[in-house]
Design a protein around this nucleic acid. Sequence first.
DNA 1: GCGCCGATTGGCT
DNA 2: GCCAATCGGCGCC
Length: 203
Amino acid sequence: MGTGRRAASLPVSFFRRDPVTVARELLGMTLVTGVGRGRTAGRIVEVEAYLGAEDPASHAFEFRRHAQNAALYGPAGTWYVYLSYGMHWCANLVAGPPGHGAAVLLRALEPIEGLPAMRRRRGTFPDRLLCAGPGRLCQALGITRALDGTRREAGTALVIPPASGGSPEIAVSRRIGLTRAADWPLRFTIRGSPWVSRRVVER
DNA sequence: GCGCCGATTGGCT
DNA sequence: GCCAATCGGCGCC
């Protein structure tokens, strides 16, 4: 919230670890956009890990590479933003070893700051759905392809660790909406959060 | 060149 | 629960 606390930048070493660890540790952190004008922020409550070359659901499966996913092969901590179904932006943070194409997809936020701006961008929907889904959260926070390929330090979108407190309790479930590798348990949510995109079904 | 498919969403049956 | 919207990549003719 408007505490003015310092936005300590996460080190590259945070993102260079395996994508599952990065995904779990991103839960509870705050994503901020529009710093300086029209600031919006939300607490990360749902993420998914995509493992890269060996993951059939990853855009980097078998090192597949094209103009739109070049950012996936950038340094850990790079933003990878892609257009889903021709209409919705989805935001990832590159994780793991360089060149492997692993990433963490941001799937849902608890809206924290700038709700009027979020509502304006999203239109007339219940607040419950402002950031409940990868496409919705990008729309609410104004994230587009412009963020793609930039580093987390760039300042257009910041990920900020909580000022204090322990790590949240995490629920693990299968990834959403996939046709390949659909049952891999790589979706991570903050247990009990009402802001997730879909109901959490643990195995 | 053409048709199909997808890490989604919202509206309608 | 079903399906169209919309577009880039890919497989195939």
